[in-house]
Structure formats: C-alpha cells, structure tokens
Measured scan of single mutants.
Amino acid sequence: QVALSRTQVCGILREELFQGDAFHQSDTHIFIIMGASGDLAKKKIYPTIWWLFRDGLLPENTFIVGYARSRLTVADIRKQSEPFFKATPEEKLKLEDFFARNSYVAGQYDDAASYQRLNSHMNALHLGSQANRLFYLALPPTVYEAVTKNIHESCMSQIGWNRIIVEKPFGRDLQSSDRLSNHISSLFREDQIYRIDHYLGKEMVQNLMVLRFANRIFGPIWNRDNIACVILTFKEPFGTEGRGGYFDEFGIIRDVMQNHLLQMLCLVAMEKPASTNSDDVRDEKVKVLKCISEVQANNVVLGQYVGNPDGEGEATKGYLDDPTVPRGSTTATFAAVVLYVENERWDGVPFILRCGKALNERKAEVRLQFHDVAGDIFHQQCKRNELVIRVQPNEAVYTKMMTKKPGMFFNPEESELDLTYGNRYKNVKLPDAYERLILDVFCGSQMHFVRSDELREAWRIFTPLLHQIELEKPKPIPYIYGSRGPTEADELMKRVGFQYEGTYKWVNPHKL
C-alpha cells in the first residue's frame, strides 16, 4: 500500500502544474464570482478556492472578487462561507491571508454602469489591468444573457486571457439551449467557454479513460460480442427537503440524466481518441451522441416518491408533501431510460440510465454486464461477469466473477477481482471535483468540460421526450421513500436483457 498525506498529494500536483506551459504561476489572475451571495458560491466555490489557495495550487498573485446585487462586505462573505471551509486552528494565518486577497463589488446584473465599476475595481488591483480574468457564473440561467453581454462589453482583460465558467442547466430543451449557446458564442470563442459538469471532475469518471485505453485486457472485450448491457446509475437517499420548488422546474431527467449520466455513457462508449488533447476527446464523445436516436417512450419509466409510513423524519414525507412543490405536480423524481448506440461496436446493446431521489442508498456507478459463458459445464450455477466502476461513495473498480467454492467439488461461487483505489492508495485525500475543474480552467484544459456541439446532441436525444411529458403530463409511478424505485423499472431492465441475480454482496474494501 502507498500512504500519501494531503501535503504529498498537493506537492505532486504542484510539480505537475508548474512543469506545464499552460499554468502561468507568476502571472496575476483575477477570479470573479458572479452571484457571490448565492448558495453555490457559499457552499462550493469559495470553499474550493480556499482549498486550492491553502494547498498552494493557485497562481501566487490571485485575487478573488465577488459580485452580486446584495450590498455585502468581505466580512459578510466570510461569515456565510467559512463554515464550509473546514479550516483547522493551525490554518488561521493562512485564512487571514486568503481573505486579504478577497474583495466585493455590489451591482445589478443588467446595468452597464455596475460592470464599469467592477472593471475599475479590477484595474485598481495590483497589475489588475493586465491580469488573466476568470469569470464564474454562479447564477440562474435567466440572467446569463445580460451578464455575459455586460462582461464582454465592460470587463474583459485587454492583455491577459479571459475565460468564463457556465453552470448547468444549459437551457431547458434543445431550442433554449441553442439560443443560449448562440448568444454566448457570439461574445466569446469556444476556447474561452467552460460549461461545467462537476461529474466530469470526479476521480473515477476520469479513471474510465485510463482503464479503457491503457489496459490491453479490456480492449478486445469492450464491444457487443461480449457486453450484454451497460447500466449507469445515480441514486440519492434523500428527497427534495424543502427545495422542491427549484427541482420541480427541471425534474430528474434535466437535473441528472441528460448531463451526468449521458457524459458517463460517452466515456464508456467512445472510441479511442487520437490523443488526450481536449478536442480529440470531445470529438469522440460527440460521435457517440450522434449514434444515439431520440428516446422512445416505451423505453422510459418515470416515478415519484411517496412517504414511507414506517419511516422516520423526512422519510415519512412524499414529494408532494414538500411545501415548495406545486400542488398535484407530476414532475418525476425517478427515471429509467434505455438508449442504444447504433454503431458497429455497440449495435443492440442497451445502455440503461437510472437516477432518482429518496432511494435506498447513495450511489453513482457504471456497471457493464457481460454475456453468459458459452457451453456451460457447471449446471447453470454460473452468474454473469460484471465490471463495476463505483464513482461514489467509496470509489472502487471491481470485476464480479466466478471462482471455485472451497471444498471437494467443482462448485462455482461469485467473488470479485478488486482493482480499488483504496487498497493501493491508503487514506489518500484526493482533490474534489470542483478543485480539479477550476484548476483545469486556470490551465486552459477543456477536456472535462462540455463543448457546444456535445451539448446540442445531448438535448436532441431528450427534448422530444421532455416535450411529450410536458404536454401529456403522465402521472409518475409512486414508489416508497427509501425503496429501490418503481418495480416497473426493474421490469424494463429485465425486458431489454439485464439479469439481476441478487445473490452477490459487494464487500467494501475500504472497511476491511
């Protein structure tokens, strides 16, 4: 086992960053958080920038500027975001240094004079007029057009580079997404736009490419001749908990499936790229999406959770019991969808996408189930092999396979070949997804960000279904809070070829 401390991990990262040409360590950078008073800024962006600063992973002359409508001070920003920093008493001095680099400007999102004030403020910072500028839009999409237009007109660096990070949702359907994309691309070049999907920053999602293309053993079996089906799962054990009003506007397909799960599907299904260059990788992902037809209604199961009468606390409440959810809402909190990649490698292999709230566990994984062994000599005792990439929690890679049961006879039983990170790298604290992705933006690497043509294809696949749901308002199937979801989803999976045995229990190697 390799035991690495946080300091050692960050030392390795620093070495990698400083050796590259793309990370300008000594240049002045300004990180501007648009929507600095909001939840995302408070819980994710400010803490992430602090962790990067604490670990010495930001360029040395980096300033952080918050911008929002609320009249706040840096002290206010500190008060609301610091509880999420997880700072230790030993880091007190470092924390003071961090907040000394912070400033805040209040202004409207659609007022040109406010942006001119913001620009004057940035120019007044040390070497601010020639600094590289990175704008993070932690804002609702309704203000994107006004904000990007004003940034472009008043706040661009004339000497350094300018980059803009856009948070999902990128529209509600193909038409609104196209409108937003066309607007942003009329102001910024594609190499300046970073559409963030934080799932692409997760260690195991990034590991998929290495697993596939750096190991000879997987190449020959990664196709329709050997793989019976692919299941991509995202499960949350909690409901909307008072935030249903926002969720109800989008629903589970827009929230998770059309982005996170579809991105994971691309990494499983794509061909080997010409290189690890950002556009070479994204070219292959677009090719996969172009091979997927629009979702067919007979390959869809929609569910909505109801309270568990035997549960406790939140578990007793259904989705419609959330006071922020519109009365009688038919918005799905669970969806199972089957897609097919219609190309030579994957023809006929079902890709089953499942996601839901208020389920029995927290889990995100990719599961490849292989065909049955031909010419069975073990009297149907063999179960199908599976390769599982567990994204969260407890990152893991393992192969479910058959071995001989101890004893006199040739009785096979299920076991696993474990390729888990935790076994080799004991207690290594890896940077989280937002840390990686923000560092990628500083480096100018777009590999783990969504390109406009990729986004367009993703919406093309799901828009007809979303429009049909909005028009017909089908009643989702009720499922109990804390269950596996509607049984109809299991029946759909069985119908397209997935075999669920229920006889195997994964042993978490992190707890051995």
Rank of each mutant, 00 (worst) to 15 (best):
I253A: 06
R254L: 05
D255K: 03
D255Q: 02
D255E: 02
V256D: 02
V256P: 03
M257G: 08
N259C: 03
H260G: 01
H260P: 02
L261C: 07
L262V: 12
Q263H: 05
Q263K: 04
C266G: 08
C266E: 04
L267Q: 08
L267K: 05
L267V: 07
L267F: 05
L267C: 08
V268S: 07
V268R: 02
E271F: 00
P273E: 03
A274K: 15
A274R: 13
S275N: 08
S275M: 05
N277W: 10
S278M: 02
S278Q: 10
D279P: 08
D279H: 09
D279N: 14
V281W: 01
V281F: 00
V281S: 06
R282L: 00
D283H: 04
D283I: 00
D283P: 01
E284N: 08
E284H: 08
K285G: 01
K285L: 01
V286C: 08
K287Q: 09
V288Q: 07
L289P: 04
L289A: 08
C291W: 07
I292G: 05
E294H: 09
V295I: 12
A297H: 14
A297V: 12
N298D: 15
N298F: 09
N299L: 10
N299I: 04
N299A: 10
V300P: 05
V301R: 08
L302H: 06
L302A: 07
G303I: 04
G303D: 02
Q304P: 01
Q304K: 04
Y305R: 02
Y305T: 00
V306S: 14
N308V: 08
P309V: 13
P309I: 12
E312N: 14
G313N: 12
A315T: 15
T316Y: 11
K317W: 08
K317D: 15
G318L: 00
G318H: 07
L320D: 05
L320Y: 07
L320S: 09
D321C: 08
D322N: 05
V325R: 02
V325I: 07
R327K: 14
G328N: 13
S329E: 05
T330Y: 10
T330P: 11
A332C: 11
A332R: 03
T333D: 02
T333A: 00
T333C: 00
A335S: 12
A335G: 14
A336I: 08
V337P: 01
V338P: 10
V338A: 14
V338G: 11
Y340K: 12
V341E: 00
V341M: 09
V341D: 00
N343I: 03
E344V: 07
E344R: 08
R345F: 09
R345L: 09
D347E: 14
V349W: 02
V349H: 01
P350H: 04
F351E: 02
F351I: 08
F351K: 00
R354H: 06
C355K: 03
G356H: 05
G356K: 02
K357Y: 02
A358L: 04
A358W: 03
N360T: 06
N360K: 06
R362E: 00
R362Q: 15
K363L: 06
E365Q: 06
E365H: 02
E365V: 04
V366K: 02
V366M: 12
R367S: 03
L368V: 14
F370K: 03
H371M: 09
H371Y: 07
H371K: 15
D372T: 07
D372L: 01
D372I: 02
V373M: 09
V373F: 05
V373E: 12
A374Y: 11
A374E: 14
G375H: 11
D376K: 09
I377P: 12
I377T: 10
I377G: 07
F378I: 07
Q380E: 14
Q380R: 12
Q380P: 14
Q381M: 09
Q381R: 10
Q381K: 10
Q381P: 13
Q381T: 12
C382P: 15
C382Q: 12
C382S: 15
K383P: 13
K383V: 15
R384S: 07
N385P: 04
L387A: 07
L387D: 02
L387C: 05
L387N: 02
R390P: 02
R390S: 12
Q392V: 03
E395V: 05
A396Y: 05
V397R: 04
T399P: 01
M401P: 03
M401V: 13
M402D: 05
P406G: 06
G407C: 08
M408I: 09
M408Q: 08
P412R: 07
E414N: 07
E414F: 11
E416Y: 06
L417C: 05
L417K: 01
L419K: 06
L419W: 04
T420D: 15
Y421L: 11
Y421S: 03
N423M: 12
R424N: 05
Y425V: 06
K426H: 08
K426C: 10
N427H: 07
K429F: 09
K429N: 13
L430V: 09
L430G: 04
P431V: 10
D432G: 10
D432E: 11
E435S: 10
L437N: 03
L437W: 00
I438S: 00
I438W: 03
D440S: 05
V441F: 06
C443Y: 14
C443R: 10
G444F: 01
S445L: 15
Q446K: 00
M447D: 04
R451D: 03
E454M: 02
E454L: 06
L455A: 05
R456Y: 08
E457Y: 09
A458K: 02
W459P: 00
R460Y: 06
R460M: 06
R460W: 05
T463L: 02
T463Q: 06
T463M: 02
T463P: 04
P464F: 08
L466P: 02
L466Y: 04
L466W: 00
H467K: 12
H467F: 11
H467W: 10
H467R: 15
Q468L: 11
I469Y: 12
I469A: 10
E470N: 13
L471A: 15
E472A: 15
K475R: 15
P476I: 10
P476Q: 03
I477L: 14
P478V: 08
Y479I: 04
I480Q: 15
G482A: 08
G482F: 04
G482M: 05
R484P: 04
T487L: 14
A489T: 08
D490P: 02
M493E: 12
V496M: 09
Q499Y: 12
Q499K: 15
Y500F: 14
Y500S: 06
G502V: 07
G502A: 10
T503I: 09
Y504S: 06
Y504D: 04
K505P: 06
K505A: 15
W506S: 05
